[in-house]
């Protein structure tokens, strides 16, 4: 069996497994799993930029929040239906990531990280500043009867699970296609050696910009769907903490692997879920894991599996 076939089989197998799991999971884990799958899409978007292109962003919450507020504000204040509002969410992700991306192209290394951090901080403060519309920290709640597309009620646990699975499947397919196509290979080449890739005649800036827009749009899609499926948009989702989370998930799962974001989100979600039952200081776990990961496992879980045997993992 060729490596290409093997990787498609593995990823679609995982999707099938998650499909079957839906019938056996108890209701609490059923709801958690839907949440994890949506957040995985956010992490996968982050992984395109961090894992494959090697650009470390500290401000992805800006894109997540762009999708989330694009959807919720147009539903709340323009009284749009969920379908068109979802498209607005995606479009705001494209617009924000394209604008920020054009500015980010001028920076490299540490400056890139700080600029992303600053832009997302400005975004977070803007959400707070227009509290009249966004209701700041308190957040917006989307009415249950509005949360349906084509007659399917997305607030119902079963259809919510399927919608999350559908979104994650789309993101997996997009990631796999990107990684296998020439475009993805150029991104990896940029990560490994920027100058050599330039010398080979590739347009670095254009590839970087495409990666930023793709990554930002996937994050915005996750943000918009999160808001649609769980009916809530709050300023917390635009804060620094939500820029650090995808970094943590991707690092834990394995940067530059298609499955890493899912594995990382799954583990960290349950780790924080369990520890927040014990203490209010649950971010301690996140901080401690970040330090331990940089010290002992920079490859992450899936990266470690790839290094030790399954070399064909994309």
């Amino acid at each position: 069996m060729s490596e290409l076939k093997k990787s498609w089989l593995l990823h679609l197998g995982i999707v099938a497994l998650l499909f079957v799991l839906q019938f056996v999971l108890p209701s609490y884990h059923h709801a958690s799993m839907a949440r994890i799958m949506v957040l995985t899409c956010y992490a996968m978007g982050y992984n395109i930029l961090f894992g494959y292109t090697g650009l470390l962003s500290l401000g992805h919450a800006l894109f997540f929040a762009a999708g989330m507020y694009g959807l919720s504000l147009s539903m709340q204040h323009l009284e749009w239906l969920a379908g068109p509002a979802l498209i607005i969410g995606l479009l705001s992700g494209v617009v924000v990531s394209l604008t920020i991306g054009l500015l980010l192209l001028r920076t490299t290394g540490v400056a890139f990280m700080i600029v992303t951090l600053m832009f997302s901080q400005a975004g977070y403060l803007t959400v707070l500043y227009f509290g009249e519309f966004t209701r700041g920290d308190e957040g917006l709640v989307i009415q249950q009867e509005l949360r349906s597309i084509a007659g399917i009620d997305l607030s119902d646990p079963t259809s919510r699970y399927f919608a999350a699975l559908l979104l994650m499947t789309i993101c997996i397919i997009v990631s796999l296609r990107v990684v296998q196509a020439g475009f993805g290979r150029v991104l990896v080449a940029i990560r490994e050696n920027n100058e050599r890739t330039r010398m080979l005649g590739y347009d670095i800036q254009r590839h970087k910009l495409s990666a930023i827009v793709l990554s930002g749009t996937m994050s915005a899609a996750a943000g918009a769907c999160y808001c649609l499926l769980f009916g809530y948009a709050g300023a917390t989702f635009a804060s620094v903490q939500y820029s650090i989370f995808p970094l943590l998930w991707v690092l834990l799962g394995g940067a530059g692997t298609v499955l890493g974001p899912f594995v990382g989100t799954l583990f960290m979600f349950y780790l924080i879920d369990l520890s927040s039952g014990l203490t209010t200081a649950y971010m301690l776990i996140a901080g401690f894991s970040l330090v331990m990961l940089t010290l002992f496992a920079p490859q992450g879980l899936v990266g470690e599996i790839r290094r030790r045997g399954l070399r064909w993992l994309p």
Binding site: V110, M283, L295
Partner: peptide, 13 residues
């Protein structure tokens, strides 16, 4: 940077 972000949360929490 990643490690000091972790350190930030550890000290703060």
């Amino acid at each position: 940077i990643v490690a000091t972000i972790g350190l930030l949360y550890v000290i703060q929490q």
